[in-house]
Amino acid sequence: MSADQTHIAFLRAVNVGGRKVEMARLREVLAGLGLGSVRTYIASGNAFFTSAETDRTALVERIEHALADSFGFAIPTILRTVPELEAELAASPFVGREPAEDERFSMVFTSGSLAGGEFPMRSAKGDWEILGASERTAYVIWRRLNGRPGANPNPVIEKTFGVYATGRFFHTAEKILAASRKA
Protein backbone atom coordinates (compact mmCIF):
# COMPACT_ATOMS: atom_id res chain seq x y z
CA MET A 1 0.00 0.00 0.00
CA SER A 2 1.03 3.55 -0.62
CA ALA A 3 0.45 6.79 1.27
CA ASP A 4 -3.11 7.85 1.98
CA GLN A 5 -4.79 9.62 -0.90
CA THR A 6 -7.99 11.65 -0.82
CA HIS A 7 -10.83 10.08 -2.78
CA ILE A 8 -14.14 11.56 -3.82
CA ALA A 9 -17.07 9.16 -3.94
CA PHE A 10 -19.96 10.11 -6.19
CA LEU A 11 -22.97 7.98 -5.25
CA ARG A 12 -25.52 7.31 -7.96
CA ALA A 13 -29.25 7.94 -7.45
CA VAL A 14 -29.41 8.68 -3.74
CA ASN A 15 -32.06 10.80 -2.02
CA VAL A 16 -34.31 10.53 -5.06
CA GLY A 17 -37.21 8.19 -5.68
CA GLY A 18 -37.33 6.87 -2.12
CA ARG A 19 -33.63 5.94 -2.06
CA LYS A 20 -32.90 7.76 1.20
CA VAL A 21 -29.28 7.94 2.33
CA GLU A 22 -28.64 10.03 5.42
CA MET A 23 -25.23 11.68 5.25
CA ALA A 24 -24.41 10.99 8.92
CA ARG A 25 -25.07 7.30 8.39
CA LEU A 26 -23.08 7.34 5.14
CA ARG A 27 -20.10 8.76 7.04
CA GLU A 28 -20.47 6.04 9.69
CA VAL A 29 -20.50 3.28 7.05
CA LEU A 30 -17.43 4.64 5.29
CA ALA A 31 -15.53 5.16 8.54
CA GLY A 32 -16.51 1.62 9.56
CA LEU A 33 -14.58 0.38 6.53
CA GLY A 34 -11.41 1.92 7.97
CA LEU A 35 -11.44 4.87 5.59
CA GLY A 36 -9.95 8.03 7.06
CA SER A 37 -11.07 11.64 7.33
CA VAL A 38 -14.58 10.81 6.10
CA ARG A 39 -16.75 13.81 5.22
CA THR A 40 -19.78 14.43 3.04
CA TYR A 41 -20.84 17.35 0.89
CA ILE A 42 -24.51 18.20 0.33
CA ALA A 43 -27.13 15.47 0.42
CA SER A 44 -26.81 14.34 -3.20
CA GLY A 45 -24.28 11.62 -2.42
CA ASN A 46 -20.81 13.11 -2.36
CA ALA A 47 -18.25 11.86 0.16
CA PHE A 48 -14.56 12.40 0.76
CA PHE A 49 -12.19 10.04 2.49
CA THR A 50 -8.57 9.03 2.61
CA SER A 51 -7.25 5.57 1.90
CA ALA A 52 -3.96 3.93 1.04
CA GLU A 53 -5.82 1.32 -1.05
CA THR A 54 -4.43 1.20 -4.61
CA ASP A 55 -6.91 -1.28 -6.07
CA ARG A 56 -9.83 0.95 -7.10
CA THR A 57 -12.03 -1.99 -8.09
CA ALA A 58 -11.59 -3.67 -4.72
CA LEU A 59 -12.22 -0.41 -2.87
CA VAL A 60 -15.42 0.29 -4.85
CA GLU A 61 -16.64 -3.27 -4.23
CA ARG A 62 -16.05 -2.94 -0.47
CA ILE A 63 -17.88 0.39 -0.36
CA GLU A 64 -20.81 -0.78 -2.49
CA HIS A 65 -21.21 -3.98 -0.45
CA ALA A 66 -21.20 -2.04 2.85
CA LEU A 67 -23.67 0.54 1.51
CA ALA A 68 -26.06 -2.16 0.24
CA ASP A 69 -25.88 -3.92 3.62
CA SER A 70 -26.51 -0.69 5.51
CA PHE A 71 -29.17 0.96 3.35
CA GLY A 72 -30.88 -2.09 1.87
CA PHE A 73 -30.40 -1.27 -1.81
CA ALA A 74 -27.52 -1.14 -4.29
CA ILE A 75 -25.71 2.19 -4.49
CA PRO A 76 -23.31 2.35 -7.42
CA THR A 77 -20.25 4.31 -6.34
CA ILE A 78 -17.90 6.15 -8.66
CA LEU A 79 -14.50 7.16 -7.29
CA ARG A 80 -12.13 9.90 -8.31
CA THR A 81 -8.95 11.06 -6.63
CA VAL A 82 -8.45 14.79 -6.20
CA PRO A 83 -5.89 14.94 -9.06
CA GLU A 84 -8.28 13.02 -11.33
CA LEU A 85 -11.14 15.44 -10.65
CA GLU A 86 -8.80 18.40 -11.13
CA ALA A 87 -7.80 17.04 -14.55
CA GLU A 88 -11.41 16.34 -15.54
CA LEU A 89 -12.46 19.86 -14.59
CA ALA A 90 -9.48 21.36 -16.45
CA ALA A 91 -10.33 19.32 -19.58
CA SER A 92 -13.94 20.48 -19.52
CA PRO A 93 -15.21 22.55 -22.45
CA PHE A 94 -17.05 24.67 -19.87
CA VAL A 95 -13.97 26.35 -18.38
CA GLY A 96 -14.36 30.11 -18.79
CA ARG A 97 -17.84 29.80 -20.33
CA GLU A 98 -21.13 31.01 -18.95
CA PRO A 99 -24.24 28.97 -19.78
CA ALA A 100 -27.08 30.65 -21.61
CA GLU A 101 -30.20 31.24 -19.54
CA ASP A 102 -31.78 27.99 -20.76
CA GLU A 103 -28.62 25.88 -20.36
CA ARG A 104 -26.93 23.95 -17.55
CA PHE A 105 -23.40 22.56 -17.79
CA SER A 106 -22.95 19.11 -16.31
CA MET A 107 -20.24 16.53 -15.78
CA VAL A 108 -21.35 12.90 -15.86
CA PHE A 109 -18.92 10.72 -13.93
CA THR A 110 -18.79 7.09 -15.03
CA SER A 111 -17.50 3.84 -13.59
CA GLY A 112 -15.64 2.89 -16.75
CA SER A 113 -14.20 4.09 -20.01
CA LEU A 114 -16.02 6.23 -22.53
CA ALA A 115 -13.41 5.43 -25.20
CA GLY A 116 -14.78 4.92 -28.66
CA GLY A 117 -17.70 7.26 -28.16
CA GLU A 118 -18.67 9.46 -31.07
CA PHE A 119 -19.17 13.00 -29.85
CA PRO A 120 -21.00 15.24 -29.92
CA MET A 121 -23.98 13.04 -29.10
CA ARG A 122 -27.41 14.68 -28.97
CA SER A 123 -30.84 13.64 -27.81
CA ALA A 124 -33.56 13.51 -30.45
CA LYS A 125 -35.39 16.39 -28.73
CA GLY A 126 -32.26 18.52 -28.42
CA ASP A 127 -32.66 18.81 -24.64
CA TRP A 128 -29.14 17.51 -23.96
CA GLU A 129 -25.88 17.24 -25.83
CA ILE A 130 -22.71 15.41 -24.83
CA LEU A 131 -20.01 17.68 -26.19
CA GLY A 132 -17.17 15.26 -25.49
CA ALA A 133 -15.56 13.12 -22.84
CA SER A 134 -12.36 12.49 -20.99
CA GLU A 135 -11.48 8.88 -20.12
CA ARG A 136 -14.38 8.44 -17.65
CA THR A 137 -16.32 11.72 -17.62
CA ALA A 138 -18.81 13.10 -20.16
CA TYR A 139 -19.36 16.84 -20.58
CA VAL A 140 -23.05 17.58 -21.08
CA ILE A 141 -25.11 20.66 -21.85
CA TRP A 142 -28.71 20.37 -20.66
CA ARG A 143 -31.23 22.65 -22.30
CA ARG A 144 -34.63 23.69 -21.02
CA LEU A 145 -37.32 23.19 -23.64
CA ASN A 146 -40.50 25.20 -23.26
CA GLY A 147 -39.36 26.18 -19.77
CA ARG A 148 -38.92 22.57 -18.64
CA PRO A 149 -35.71 20.72 -17.84
CA GLY A 150 -34.65 18.18 -20.41
CA ALA A 151 -34.35 14.43 -20.06
CA ASN A 152 -31.48 12.84 -18.19
CA PRO A 153 -28.70 11.59 -20.53
CA ASN A 154 -27.31 9.19 -17.91
CA PRO A 155 -29.38 6.16 -19.01
CA VAL A 156 -28.13 6.65 -22.59
CA ILE A 157 -24.52 6.86 -21.38
CA GLU A 158 -24.96 3.76 -19.22
CA LYS A 159 -26.50 1.72 -22.04
CA THR A 160 -24.08 2.92 -24.73
CA PHE A 161 -20.89 2.34 -22.73
CA GLY A 162 -21.92 -0.36 -20.23
CA VAL A 163 -21.04 1.79 -17.23
CA TYR A 164 -22.73 3.37 -14.23
CA ALA A 165 -23.13 7.14 -14.52
CA THR A 166 -23.97 9.95 -12.14
CA GLY A 167 -24.01 13.64 -12.95
CA ARG A 168 -23.17 16.83 -11.14
CA PHE A 169 -23.58 20.34 -12.45
CA PHE A 170 -20.22 21.81 -13.47
CA HIS A 171 -20.32 24.53 -10.81
CA THR A 172 -21.17 21.87 -8.19
CA ALA A 173 -18.22 19.72 -9.32
CA GLU A 174 -15.97 22.77 -8.82
CA LYS A 175 -17.38 23.19 -5.30
CA ILE A 176 -16.93 19.47 -4.57
CA LEU A 177 -13.26 19.73 -5.58
CA ALA A 178 -12.77 22.76 -3.33
CA ALA A 179 -14.50 21.01 -0.43
CA SER A 180 -12.38 17.89 -0.92
CA ARG A 181 -9.27 19.92 -0.16
CA LYS A 182 -10.52 21.18 3.22
CA ALA A 183 -9.40 19.35 6.32
Results as ranks from 00 to 15, higher is better:
residue 62 R to S: 08
residue 71 F to S: 03
residue 52 A to M: 02
residue 62 R to I: 12
residue 60 V to T: 15
residue 64 E to H: 15
residue 57 T to M: 04
residue 34 G to M: 07
residue 66 A to G: 13
residue 58 A to D: 13
residue 32 G to Q: 07
residue 36 G to L: 13
residue 25 R to D: 09
residue 30 L to E: 14
residue 37 S to G: 10
residue 27 R to I: 04
residue 29 V to A: 13
residue 56 R to A: 10
residue 58 A to W: 03
residue 43 A to R: 04
residue 25 R to S: 08
residue 43 A to L: 06
residue 46 N to L: 03
residue 37 S to T: 12
residue 45 G to Y: 03
residue 59 L to C: 05
residue 70 S to K: 09
residue 29 V to L: 05
residue 31 A to G: 14
residue 69 D to P: 03
residue 69 D to H: 11
residue 44 S to I: 03
residue 60 V to E: 11
residue 48 F to V: 04
residue 70 S to E: 11
residue 32 G to D: 07
residue 54 T to H: 03
residue 53 E to Y: 02
residue 53 E to V: 09
residue 60 V to W: 07
residue 47 A to I: 00
residue 56 R to Y: 12
residue 28 E to M: 07
residue 63 I to H: 06
residue 69 D to V: 07
residue 63 I to T: 05
residue 30 L to T: 15
residue 35 L to Y: 12
residue 50 T to F: 06
residue 45 G to D: 00
residue 28 E to W: 01
residue 41 Y to H: 14
residue 65 H to A: 14
residue 37 S to Y: 09
residue 65 H to T: 10
residue 27 R to T: 02
residue 36 G to H: 14
residue 33 L to W: 14
residue 54 T to C: 05
residue 24 A to F: 01
residue 38 V to R: 06
residue 50 T to M: 10
residue 39 R to G: 15
residue 47 A to F: 08
residue 32 G to P: 08
residue 49 F to K: 07
residue 31 A to C: 02
residue 42 I to Q: 11
residue 34 G to A: 05
residue 69 D to W: 01
residue 46 N to I: 02
residue 47 A to D: 00
residue 46 N to E: 07
residue 32 G to I: 13
residue 66 A to P: 11
residue 55 D to F: 04
residue 58 A to E: 11
residue 29 V to E: 10
residue 57 T to G: 13
residue 26 L to W: 00
residue 34 G to Y: 12
residue 60 V to M: 05
residue 26 L to D: 02
residue 61 E to L: 09
residue 68 A to V: 12
residue 34 G to L: 08
residue 44 S to K: 03
residue 26 L to E: 00
residue 23 M to V: 04
residue 30 L to G: 14
residue 34 G to W: 09
residue 70 S to G: 08
residue 50 T to N: 09
residue 38 V to Q: 15
residue 26 L to G: 01
residue 25 R to V: 05
residue 31 A to R: 10
residue 60 V to P: 15
residue 59 L to T: 04
residue 52 A to W: 02
residue 28 E to H: 11
residue 61 E to C: 01
residue 45 G to P: 00
residue 28 E to L: 13
residue 54 T to E: 10
residue 61 E to H: 11
residue 40 T to F: 05
residue 63 I to P: 11
residue 28 E to R: 15
residue 71 F to A: 07
residue 44 S to W: 02
residue 25 R to G: 11
residue 26 L to I: 04
residue 71 F to V: 10
residue 63 I to G: 15
residue 69 D to G: 13
residue 46 N to Y: 07
residue 56 R to F: 01
residue 27 R to S: 08
residue 25 R to T: 13
residue 54 T to F: 00
residue 70 S to V: 02
residue 55 D to L: 01
residue 38 V to E: 12
residue 40 T to H: 02
residue 53 E to I: 06
residue 34 G to I: 02
